[in-house]
């Protein structure tokens, strides 16, 4: 009886673990997509209205800001957004965003727009790759966690 309960608990744990890992991966994709949208929004605001960076960031999507970990009423800067996403993005993705952030606002309009386009393009490639891999990763996570649980169950039983 105990073994059955233990086995069921193990399976539930495996399922919950896989859900956690899948949602983490999903959030990773959303975060990356959010940064890409932010760069595109920055491009648009500079091109149309020549708005300064702090004002553009204030208008950023709230859902994206919450995803990054910004609390309501907290001051926003690109550097802060990047800091809050440590360990939630790949080193390559972080490097792209950090390069963009370090150059943001330091040049004139035409060059700034070109840089926005360039970095947005780079992030889009990373995002496309992640989105392509997501279904496979999801299956892999479920398979591995369930198999690991089953393996332990077999050993116990």
């Amino acid at each position: 009886m105990h073994k059955i309960i233990g086995a069921v608990l193990l399976l539930i744990s495996a399922f919950l673990c896989s859900l956690y890992l899948i949602s983490k991966e999903k959030k990773h994709v959303e975060l990356l997509g959010g940064f890409n949208e932010l760069i595109r929004e920055i491009y648009k605001q500079i091109e149309m209205l020549n708005l300064p960076v702090p004002e553009i960031l204030e208008r950023a999507d709230e859902r994206f800001l919450t995803l990054c970990g910004i609390r309501e009423g907290e001051a926003i800067s690109l550097e802060k957004l990047i800091d809050l996403t440590e360990n939630r993005l790949d080193p390559k993705e972080r490097e792209i965003i950090m390069s963009f952030a370090s150059g943001l606002g330091r040049c004139y309009r035409d060059e700034q727009l070109r840089l926005c386009k360039y970095y947005s393009g780079e992030l889009e490639s990373c995002l496309a790759a992640r989105k392509n891999d997501y279904p496979k990763k999801r299956k892999l996570i479920i398979t591995l966690t369930v198999c690991a649980a089953l393996g332990i169950i077999i050993l116990i039983i």
């Binding site: 500079i46 020549n50 708005l51 300064p52 960076v53 702090p54 943001l104 606002g105 330091r106 040049c107 004139y108 309009r109 700034q112």
Partner: peptide
């Protein structure tokens, strides 16, 4: 110069 432009040189071009 960058900081005096409020982090947005292009806005003061």
């Amino acid at each position: 110069f960058y900081k005096l432009c409020g982090g947005s040189v292009y806005a003061h071009a």
